[in-house]
Design a protein around this nucleic acid. Sequence first.
DNA 1: ACTTCGGTTATGGCA
DNA 2: TGCCATAGCCGAAGT
Lengths: 219, 219
Amino acid sequence: MEFVKILHVNCSVKYSGRGDTTLAPHDRIVMMKDDGSVSVHSGEGVKPLNYMGAKAKVSEEIVDGERVLMFDSSKENLTVTIHRLINEIEWEVEDGEPGLVRDGTESDLQEWLSKNMHAINNNLEFVEREYSTGAGPVDLYARDLMTGCDVLIEVKRVASSSAVYQIRRYLEGHDNPQARGMIVALDVRPRTRHLADKHGIEWVEVNYPARNTPASEAT
Amino acid sequence: MEFVKILHVNCSVKYSGRGDTTLAPHDRIVMMKDDGSVSVHSGEGVKPLNYMGAKAKVSEEIVDGERVLMFDSSKENLTVTIHRLINEIEWEVEDGEPGLVRDGTESDLQEWLSKNMHAINNNLEFVEREYSTGAGPVDLYARDLMTGCDVLIEVKRVASSSAVYQIRRYLEGHDNPQARGMIVALDVRPRTRHLADKHGIEWVEVNYPARNTPASEAT
DNA sequence: ACTTCGGTTATGGCA
DNA sequence: TGCCATAGCCGAAGT
C-alpha cells in the first residue's frame, strides 16, 4: 500500500537545484507521496508550481513555531514553510498501478509507414528505418521506383517548422546529393507547408489507421 | 476563490487528442481545478498519469450506474469512469497566486551578458538584444571591435546541438554574410562543442555571477 | 489562433 | 551512468 498525504496550507516554498526558485506566502495544496515526491499546487493549472521527484529524503521540523517540510536529494532541495495549516488528509492508495497505455506515437506511425509506404505514394519502396546519415538517423529511407532517387523521410505526428530543418540537415549529411527530402505527418502545420515548399521539401499528410478497434469505422 | 476537488477512486481513464492513451481500472487520485484542468495520480511519482489542461468543459453523468467525468476541449477529450468512490473532498483555495519566482534563467543570463560582454571576450561590443534576423530574433547581436565583424550570439543555460542549428539559421537569415556565429552558455555539452567546431560556430562557457546576493547587485 | 521557445522540462533509449 | 532525442511535453509571449 502507498500513502498519499495532501495538505491545504498557507505556505512559502524555496527550491534550489537545477535552478533556484521561490514562492511567496500564499494558500496552496501540497501533495506528498511516500516515494518522497512532492508537488505544490495553486488553484489553477495542471502543472505544480514547485515539485521534486522521488528519492528525496523527507524531514519535518518546527522553526520559529512554524512547521517546515524539507525534501533533500543529492542535487536538489525543496523547503515548504507552513504558515498556517488549513486541512490535512492522508489516503491509502492500492499499489500495482498498471500504467499508461499509449497508442499512436510517432514510433508506431513510423513502423506502420515502413510497411505501408503506399499510404504516402505508390512509387515508394521502403529501404530502411532509422537510416544513419552523417547528420543523424533519418526516420525512413526510401527509394523512388520511377526515378531510382533516394528519398529521406521525416515522420511526425504533428510537423512544425523544425521538421523542415531536420530533414534539411539529413539531406546535407547524406552521401547522395540528389536525394529528395520529405515530411510525412498526420498534421502538417500551415507555416510548415510553406517553409517546406520554400526549401524544396515535399510534404504529405497521411491518415493513421484506426487503432485498437476492430470495426471502429462506424461513423 | 478557486475550488479544488480531489477524489480518491477506483477508475479507468481514456484520453484522446494529441495522442491516445488508456488507463486500466485501478485505485487513483483525481485532482480537478475549476479552471477545467484535471490530473490523475497514482501513488507514486510527481507526474500525473493522465491530465488535461485548462479551458476544458467539464461534465458529469451516470453511465451503467457508474459516475463518468468528462473533460472536453476543442481538440482533446478525457474521460474518467469511476468504478468506486472511496473519498472525495473539495477545498477552497484563495486566488491571487503570486507565482513562481525564477532566478538564473536564460533571460537573466542574456541581460547580464548584454552588460558584461567582457565575460565572453574583451573585443566584443554589445549592439542589440533580441535582434531580428530574417530567420527570427537572435539573443545577442554584437560587434567585434578589432575586425568590425558582426557577431550573432545564441545564449543558453545548457547548450545542446539545437543551439548550433539555431545560430546557423540566424546567420543564414542575417543580411551580412560575413557575420560570425557564437554560442555562449553556462554549459556547452560535449557533442555540441564538436558540432559547433565542425560548422565554424564559436562557443564560450561563462560563469554566471552569484545571484540574490546584495553585494553582487552593485551595477 | 498559430507559432516559437524556455523549462527545476521529464523520460526512455542507448552508448 | 551520462548523454541525447522525444513528448499527449506545459506554459508564456509574440504575431
